[in-house]
Design a protein around this nucleic acid. Structure first.
Lengths: 331, 331
DNA sequence: ACGGTTCGTGACATCGATTACCCACCGTCG
DNA sequence: CGACGGTGGGTAATCGATGTCACGAACCGT
């Protein structure tokens, strides 16, 4: 077993130079004699030396680590996004630290504060708070994902929520539906609010009025979404179609429709989810791939890290309607 | 905005002491006069000082970070495990760094090496390699999850694969099945090998011989599992029941049974998965909850970190059969 | 031949904390 | 009364790397 700790000083000693020169070789400084360089490189290889990342970070003031802050790392959507980021980071020899906000603005602040204190090179964040002025002076690069930054000019990778919702609702209208219910999270979130707006706009444009009892815009979790769905179906004049505006809701709606054998009700969901294509009928979705979003965010961040100082960009991840059956049912 | 950098020296200056004394207060050293202590604490609060984690780690030789190494962070099972670990870490003010091995032993080595070099306090790892001697001398605590350590005596949190497989197969036999197919990953993995052994043992005990064509023990991914399932169903004498021994396989099998309208074939899966309860019939599973596994692993790790030096333990996460319909079909 | 570059190099300070070691009290005991 | 032991606290070394700056040698132009 090679010795426990090999320091730069050991390398320098082995090569017969000073630590400074060894450091120069390590960092690819050009002002080192060819002969010296090879001697140091030999010593590095010989001793299997690798620099101490902590010491380096302390001195340089920036760590080869990127932070990922999401609602919940256990959420399959964010897990996939994170996985993609980790892949990109690994390819560049960087490490990734993750943290979940649980949708709490305070916690978001706490986590970001901790990460900047650790001098992460950059952070990819799905914000929970609605005001990001506090990030004004941070020295690390930031990329916002899924939700926009407020009061801060940073790169962001977004989903066109408004358009996606319109696509979904238009599709249902095209199948002949007039009573289209909506299930969504609390509209205090931008994302949710925009999807709700898209839903209303598309219906308005088609000249369809929306009875408020069809708008269930406050389902925080799967069981609640399930309960609301059951409620909708018990109405005197039930909806003939449902637009579920996020994955959590979808995972509540779909099972209920099936267990109540009400698979005659059309369903379009915002966001693909596991097994959506295995149900009978398979669930039609507006797809925004987490892989793509993760890649875009990572690309953006690494682009910044390599020194680009362009103005902040807003990238919109592509959306497409995946017809699978449930959204093509007629009333 | 408070000043960008507050160092311990600033606190000491404000309190009129030396950095050493300030450091003592910070680390709860008892040999500090009550009066001095309060003065320093006031200064800390006043300046909103928080110690630099990097500098501290460099000096102390151990970082307040725990590493999580899994096959893939995007896998919903591991994502949930990771989420639970992160939750536990956050509660203790520690950060979490994650990395995926992609099942590569080399990469496992690389990642663990990198983490120990970063002086993580501990690592929770789902190993990809089959020999862990190389971890013999590491200074950080380790907890293995889901697969056993080989050549190394460490805490581990496991699933009783053998028992689980027997439970699944017994259940199918009890429903009257005799031709029970198996789908699994490559049996080089311990987990897989044990489940396979359980499958064979249970059948043998029931006096049922297993035609080798029913054993599809090499499905690396979802599409492959799907293809194998279709193949099984095309056989001259097809199986009346299928035991899918891991989640990835299950996500291949279930959709195929549905899309081929062969929901008359009984199915029991090892590991719960999203929407398993929404299918018609819902999928019967042997459940081993990732939340529980994550918690157990985190508990174990933090227990070690707080200084326990008991011999290594082997914890087995509880398993239960969740009857949902697909496993109760008769031939 | 001499001052001015450029090049390769090393001594030393530095990042921000912890810690080894030493000192200055104060009270007490022999 | 002086040595001793326990407190409270300071100085400087340390963790492992990088940045500053200065220095000697070779090189160049006039």
């Amino acid at each position: 077993m090679t010795a426990r700790k090999v320091r730069l000083a050991d390398v320098a000693a082995a090569a017969g130079t000073s630590t400074k020169t060894a450091s120069r070789v390590l960092n690819g400084d050009t002002r080192v004699a060819e002969e010296t360089r090879t001697r140091v490189e030999a010593a590095i290889a010989e001793l299997d030396y690798r620099p101490d990342p902590l010491a380096r970070s302390l001195r340089k003031g920036t760590d080869e680590t990127i932070g990922v802050v999401v609602d919940s790392i256990a959420d399959p959507f964010f897990a996939t996004v994170t996985g993609e980021i980790e892949k990109a980071a690994f390819a560049r020899g960087m490490t990734v630290t993750v943290a979940s906000t649980g949708r709490s603005a305070d916690r978001e602040r706490l986590l970001l504060d901790g990460m900047t204190r650790r001098r992460v090179a950059g952070v990819i964040v799905v914000p929970a708070s609605t005001d990001h002025e506090y990030l004004r002076g941070v020295s690390c690069s930031l990329v916002f994902v899924d939700r926009e930054a407020v009061g801060l000019d940073v790169d962001s990778v977004l989903v066109d929520d408004y358009l996606g919702a319109r696509m979904a609702v238009r599709h249902l209208i095209e199948q002949g539906h007039r009573r289209i219910a909506l299930l969504s999270d609390a509209p205090v979130l931008q994302t949710t609010a925009r999807r709700l707006a898209g839903y209303r706009a598309e219906l308005a444009e088609a000249g369809i009025s929306v009875p408020e009892e069809l708008v269930q815009a406050n389902c925080p979790d799967i069981p609640d979404a399930a309960a609301r769905t059951a409620e909708l179906l018990r109405m005197a004049e039930p909806p003939t179609a449902i637009f579920s505006s996020n994955i959590r809701c979808s995972m509540g709606v779909a099972p209920v429709l099936h267990s109540l054998s009400r698979t005659d009700v059309a369903l379009v969901c915002f966001g693909d989810f596991f097994m959506a294509d295995a149900l009978q009928p398979a669930v039609t979705v507006i797809d925004h791939r987490p892989e793509v979003i993760g890649q875009l965010a990572a690309d953006r961040l690494f682009h910044r890290l390599s020194g680009a100082s362009e103005p902040a960009t807003r990238i919109e991840a592509p959306l497409h309607l995946v017809r699978r059956g449930s959204g093509e049912l007629r009333p």
